[in-house]
Simulated scan of single mutants.
Amino acid sequence: MKELQIEQRGSVWVGVFRAMASPCEIHIELRSRKRAAQLMALAQKEALRIERLFSRYRDDNVIHRINTAAGRSVTVDSETARMLDFADQCFTLSEGLFDVTSGLLRKAWNFDGSDRVPTMAAVDALLPQVGWQQVSWSEPHFTLPDGMQIDLGGIGKEYAVDRTVSLLNEHCQAPFLVNFGGDLHALRSPVTAQGWRVGIEASRGGSSDALHSILLERGALTTSGDARRYLLKDGVRYGHVLNPKTGWPVEGAPASVTVAGNTCTEAGILSTLAILHGNEAESFLEDQGVRYWVQR
């Protein structure tokens, strides 16, 4: 659904399109359909721009140049530099649990709902090529050892939400909500309601009913979990969030974690880190002093 589709729901216009392998929605409370459509087109353009810039599936962007540089230094633009700085910060603060070089492990893992769990040997063979501590980063020069890769997918969608919110805020004062694949951010509530009604879906069991209903006045919500990307073998479910130190799914990880934050970038890293903390997810989130919902 590359084309923008627009419909009216009560006092709110909703624009729907697809970007970053996710369904995307822009909700804007405006009288004018024409003005709403202009703002939604602006949001869609920004989402697609960020997808083009940071997607690991393209061969015409900075990520491809870095991943195919064969150990040579790559000069990056200022926006990419900010993302690399954030990746470095996340790696340091998480003591190596959040690592954008761990995407290489997808060569062994394909979380398609099947029972095809890789062998220990296949995973172990990739581990020497995982580890942010092996890269060289001094803005604007980034050097990745030959054979390694980076994948900004773990922070890219949340960044796209926040960038889109900032852009829309520059062009209108109307209440709006940005929702990219379940990562949400709103700056102000609708005039006709106390907030945006948001549902947290049950992570397993196939129910379409919301497990929790939240009234989001402003701020962000993100969810990490294994509802759609997992393997199932001999009654054991393997979630798609991998420990970069072992190459295997985190033991004792919650089925899903939803976190509220000031921005999607902030909430997103906390929800992912909570998954990576496994059995200690709730304790980790309590220490952060954030509002959260965990499903086990």
Score class of each variant (00 low, 15 high):
Ala220Ile: 05
Ser224Asn: 06
Asn279Thr: 13
Arg52Ala: 12
Pro190Thr: 12
Cys24Val: 13
Arg204Lys: 12
Arg65Ala: 15
Val198Cys: 05
Thr68Ile: 08
Val130His: 05
Gly261Asp: 03
Leu270Ile: 09
Pro175Met: 12
His240Cys: 10
Met83Asp: 09
Gly252Ile: 01
Thr258Phe: 10
Gln194Val: 12
Thr222Ser: 05
Gly182Leu: 01
Pro254Val: 06
Glu217Phe: 09
Thr119His: 07
Leu187Pro: 01
His27Trp: 15
Pro145Tyr: 04
His185Phe: 03
Tyr230Ala: 01
Ile155Pro: 00
Glu25Lys: 15
Thr119Asn: 06
Ile269Gly: 00
Asp59Leu: 10
Pro118Ser: 01
Thr258Ser: 15
Val290Ser: 01
Val62Met: 13
Gly156Val: 05
Ala41Phe: 06
Arg52Trp: 11
Thr164Arg: 02
Cys172Val: 12
His212Gly: 00
Thr258Gln: 07
Cys264Met: 08
Gly182Val: 11
Ala36Leu: 07
Ala121Asp: 14
Leu84Glu: 00
Gly206Ala: 08
Pro254Phe: 05
Asp226Tyr: 02
Ser136Cys: 11
Ala47Ser: 13
Glu139Gln: 13
Trp137Leu: 02
Asp115Ser: 15
Leu93Glu: 13
Leu39Ile: 09
Val165Asp: 02
Ile66Tyr: 01
Leu104Gln: 02
Ile63Lys: 03
Ser136Met: 11
Pro175Ser: 04
Ile275Glu: 03
Met40Ala: 14
Lys45Thr: 14
Val74His: 04
Gly261Met: 07
Arg197Cys: 10
Gln129Ile: 02
